[in-house]
Nucleic acid binder design. Structure first.
Lengths: 194, 194
DNA sequence: TACAGACTTTACCGATCGGTACAGACAAAA
DNA sequence: TTTTGTCTGTACCGATCGGTAAAGTCTGTA
């Protein structure tokens, strides 16, 4: 096994940024080559399936990040209230208060949704389910927990769209804060014990 | 003046659908040609500026539709409460309960946002302002009206993303209904007279 | 009937697309 | 030193991209 200077894993975050900037179709192999510093030979060595495999790897990477940093804490934390707070912090940080796009959301509105339908669907379904789980464990009724979770994910995605459309990060900040307050209030209203 | 069988105006809705389906970059001239039934020559006769002019025309058309069907009633109706209801109905119908994408929102998440920045920004800013105006005339305090309006636009855009990601129109229906209820409740709570 | 202008058809352009093939560079193992 | 397998640079492929040019068709007007 040769010592590898640039690993496949190192390339994925760069690919993610390129896809975020240009979209799937818009991210040409030459652009990808420039940004990663890798020629076509190397790229096809790491990703024999071409762009499709690159995008799949990026989606898997994103899914993994959210799973460990957001979903799992929401589902398993002993303190669901602080897990919700943690989600708000993680998401604000991840999306850089709206400067950064949600690649999965962008894919959902694009033609490529069909090609990556399961990954896209899985991402949002897992998010919604994990948040609902935390809210329920914090004392919310199951129905309320479900609808609050769905509306929260909707608000985050919508805020990303609007923040970018208006080129105004304060839109995202306001939205995430009012969402946070709304979740906190719902948990305050809920029976304290589990 | 020659009798025109196919007018420029007839082409624009078709262009809108093509852009919605394939995105700006993804909508090739050959696809556009097939769907409109027009050859390149005709397309460039109607839109000398090429794809860019086509997209601009589509955006202008969308803007005009929302201006007359949504924004103006919200701003000028004598009965702001029913104007808000009208908006909910118009939007649900326009987006076909989430089956149809918001082209402007999709553009906002795409590279083309830079090219059509003013049109994209204008669309959302006008929507937010018109809704805030209606809410304020319905008795809401200016600050509340503004934040409610912003959160409503965010919810609609987010619901479109999520509905398409999960391929589930009930997501949109639930979201628009809870948004409608929220707006109605806020106006109920407000002082009745203007 | 003849002309004019609106519209279409067709051929073509250079550029770039995603992808392939393959020879060579390089380092670890023998 | 030789071998082996990983990684890379480069040349190349056919297809398609957006866009241009110009000849040809149609139609209303005079």
């Amino acid at each position: 096994m040769a010592k590898i200077v640039v690993e496949r894993a190192d390339v994925i975050p760069v690919l993610a940024e390129v896809f975020r900037e240009y979209g799937f179709e818009g991210a040409s192999l030459s652009t990808i080559g420039e940004r990663t510093g890798l020629g076509k030979g190397s790229l096809y060595h790491f990703f024999p399936g071409g762009k499709e495999e690159m995008a799949a790897a990026v989606l898997h990477d994103i899914d993994h990040w959210f799973e460990t940093q957001v979903y799992r804490p929401l589902r398993e934390s002993d303190d669901p209230r602080s897990a919700v707070d943690g989600m708000v912090r993680a998401v604000t940080d991840y999306f850089q208060s709206g400067k950064r796009i949600c690649l999965v959301g962008a894919f959902a509105l694009d033609t490529v949704r069909d090609r990556f339908a399961t990954a896209v669907s899985r991402y949002f379904a897992a998010w919604r389910a994990a948040l609902a789980s935390a809210l329920e464990r914090a004392g919310c009724a199951p129905d309320l927990a479900r609808s609050l979770a769905e509306e929260t994910v909707i608000a985050i995605q919508g805020a990303l769209v609007l923040a970018r459309a208006l080129d105004d990060t304060t839109v995202f900040s306001r939205s995430i804060e009012s969402t946070r307050a709304r979740l906190a209030a719902a948990m305050d209203r809920a029976p304290p014990a589990r």
